[in-house]
Design a protein around this nucleic acid. Structure first.
Lengths: 182, 182
DNA sequence: ACGGAAACGTCAATGATGCTGACCCATACA
DNA sequence: TGTATGGGTCAGCATCATTGACGTTTCCGT
């Protein structure tokens, strides 16, 4: 039941169009955006949350697995910067992940104070499981919406971010890892 | 610095294109979606969170203000359904909001067991303040991305939702309130 | 008119996620 | 040698959400 292309059904109870380029900024549309983000994000995370609950973990654990998997060899400090949380908050999640064998730390080569983080096989397997669950959700949404909508989605989401988040995002997709051979 | 139109920059480190319509479902693109949702949602809520913190409130309070404002006269049960939380969780947020004069409850006319919720002036003022903060964020994103991207954003976000959320969403934009005159 | 069920409220306990403040250790570097 | 940095940890606190168990009021079908 893919939505009909073209016409946004989001312009409900509106005055007659008065510019089509300003129109889309009206209040109801912005409230709709709030609704969309709330429901969309909640359901996006719901599948993974269920898996995590069985393992006595939460969303925070998933985020660590996700970003460590995305950037193997990431330092604790970089991870803190990406997540935007405190050392203590990260510690309470990261320490158990290491103890339970999902993540390994090895000292940095250039700077031995650093702890470079990596997923173990076990960690990678769990991350993959969580990813696959979300993949279904996202793929369905992407397929229903079509490639052009996906591109629009990306642009809007990026626009919602502050400078820091944009930089972090770019750093994730870009360089796979800054040297540091094993 | 609006992103260059057309080319998704999300197709990094890719094999040569093999369909362009299947291509956009590849793993890296799905991981990018995870990143976008995490950063985007976080920064979207950040502004309102800051205001709320000063008032010793949290996101949950905002959600109540938002949905009560969006649907004046909503019952507690409907609100529970929309938020997807338990009665107890709602109570801990709603009771203080009523005590502090942000929300009023009046018994239902047709069914006096119900408590119909409404914002007071004070509540509407706070909701407006929170809304305005998020409005800036969303407007910037919408403007940078353009109307077509906005439409795509809407379609994808909607696609992320489950059946229930879609129904709830539709009920929000649609009928302003089911009768029940004061 | 009676009894079950629905709508709402509330008490108690628990868990996950985050915060601040205060330390500590090991390493890097001037 | 002395300070700064990367990382870890302890204690205490707040928010948000959970489950389970009751209690009250009101509705409605038999």
């Amino acid at each position: 039941m893919p939505a009909p292309p073209g016409e946004p059904d989001a312009t409900r109870g509106a005055q007659p169009p008065a510019g089509r380029n300003l129109l889309f900024l009206r209040e109801e549309e912005l409230r709709l955006a709030q609704d969309l983000l709330f429901f969309g994000y909640r359901d996006f995370t719901a599948g993974a949350d269920a898996i995590l609950a069985d393992l006595n973990m939460g969303r925070a654990h998933h985020r660590v697995l996700h970003f460590v998997g995305r950037r193997p060899g990431i330092t604790v400090g970089e991870l803190l910067g990406i997540l935007g949380i405190t050392k203590q908050s990260l510690g309470r999640v990261l320490t158990p992940l290491v103890e339970d064998g999902y993540v390994v730390q090895r000292p940095g080569r250039a700077d031995r104070r650093q702890r470079l983080l990596q997923l173990t096989e076990k960690g990678a397997a769990l991350e993959r499981r969580l990813f696959d669950r979300q993949r279904e959700t996202v793929m369905r949404a992407y397929r229903e919406a079509g490639p052009q909508a996906v591109e629009g989605f990306r642009r809007v989401m990026r626009g919602l971010m502050g400078e820091e988040a944009r930089a972090a995002l770019d750093s994730l997709g870009g360089p796979p890892a800054p040297a540091e051979p094993r």
